[in-house]
Simulated assay, not measured.
Amino acid sequence: MTTVQPRRPRWTITKSALLLLGIVLALATVFPLVWMVTGSFKPADEVNGASLLPSEPTLENFVYVFTQVPFLRYMLNSFIVSAAVTVLALWFHSMAAYALARLRFPGRETLFLMIFSTMLVSLPVILIPTFVVVRTLGLVDTYAGLIVPAIFNAFGIFLLRQFYVSLPAELEEAALVDGASYWRIYRSIILPLSRPILSALTVFFFLTNWNSFVWPLTITSDPDLRVVQLGIATFQQQYASDWNYVLAAATVAALPTLLIFFVFQKQIVESIKSAGFK
């Protein structure tokens, strides 16, 4: 019996160029993160280039960030806003997407087209009108002013609708025959099947609001409501010559984003598969 030797992949110029391009892009992506983390453990003179001799890692930068500046308060504010927006957005977006995907009512396609068209409008275009509405409602310098305008996101409704359209209609038909209402179908059948796509949107919504800067800068002036990104910007203004403090604060702010990505990494991959994206 003859054994068939596996064919080795043939390296062409195109494959080699793509591999080299991928390595360059990976290094360009990872280098700022590595520089930030390593710089956060260095003293000020080494980070600023005043000393060329390497020194031992130090935790003094992190101690200063948490003792001399209310950075924990900034992180708490960001967590409250990000978590509240994520939970409320997933709740309302999933209901809206289910209605647009499964329920038949006049103007459904027109309504979906109007929601989808808002994805073409950038934040600077609606920044002033949104601020006027929030100020009229008396929500300036409040958590509600930070949370409510960020709940609506057409991308979430669009992605969930496409996912619900791909689900087999036989599941709902069988539940309707058994006497289940649409609300029961949504709660008992649709939501459990939506865990992969909801996990991916959880990461998207949380990271988007955790890294939010323009809207919190516009709507708040109270230091007690300052979010983490505004806190880092304040660091850059106060400690422009001490980059070690800025890097330490940025490293601490990046930890929750990395943690939530690694926790939901498997669900993100599953959501991409189930949504049919290539």
Rank of each mutant, 00 (worst) to 15 (best):
M1V: 13
T3S: 05
T3D: 09
I13A: 15
T14C: 01
T14V: 12
S16M: 06
A17I: 13
A17K: 00
A17Q: 01
G22W: 01
V24H: 02
V30R: 00
P32D: 11
L33A: 06
M36N: 14
V37N: 07
K42Y: 02
P43H: 11
A44C: 05
V47L: 05
V47K: 05
L53T: 14
E56D: 07
E56Q: 07
E56C: 02
E60A: 07
N61A: 05
V63C: 03
V63S: 08
Q68P: 01
P70L: 01
F79I: 04
V81S: 01
V81G: 03
A84S: 15
V85G: 08
V87Q: 09
V87E: 10
F92G: 13
A97I: 03
Y98R: 10
A99G: 12
A101S: 05
R108M: 08
E109H: 09
T110Y: 07
L113Y: 13
F116Y: 12
F116P: 14
T118Q: 07
M119F: 02
V125G: 15
I128D: 10
P129R: 11
V132H: 06
V133W: 00
V134P: 01
V134I: 12
L137R: 10
L139Q: 13
V140S: 11
A144M: 15
L146S: 09
V148D: 12
P149T: 04
A150H: 04
A150Q: 09
G156E: 11
G156C: 07
G156I: 03
F158E: 11
L159I: 06
L160M: 15
L160V: 04
L160A: 06
R161L: 08
F163G: 09
F163Y: 08
S166G: 15
P168M: 13
E170T: 08
E173W: 05
L176T: 03
D178A: 10
A180C: 14
S181M: 01
Y182M: 08
W183A: 15
W183Y: 03
R184V: 13
R184D: 11
Y186M: 08
S188G: 04
S194E: 00
S194C: 06
R195Y: 05
A200S: 15
L201R: 00
L201M: 12
V203R: 02
F205A: 07
F206L: 14
N209G: 02
W210C: 08
F213K: 03
P216V: 04
I219L: 15
S221L: 03
R226S: 04
V227S: 06
Q229F: 03
T234H: 10
T234F: 02
T234N: 14
F235M: 14
Q238F: 12
S241N: 10
S241C: 01
W243C: 09
W243Q: 15
N244I: 00
N244T: 09
A248D: 00
A250E: 00
A253C: 04
A254L: 14
L255A: 15
P256A: 09
T257N: 12
L258N: 01
L259A: 14
L259D: 14
I260C: 14
V263K: 08
Q265N: 15
K266C: 12
V269E: 15
V269Y: 02
G276R: 01
G276M: 04
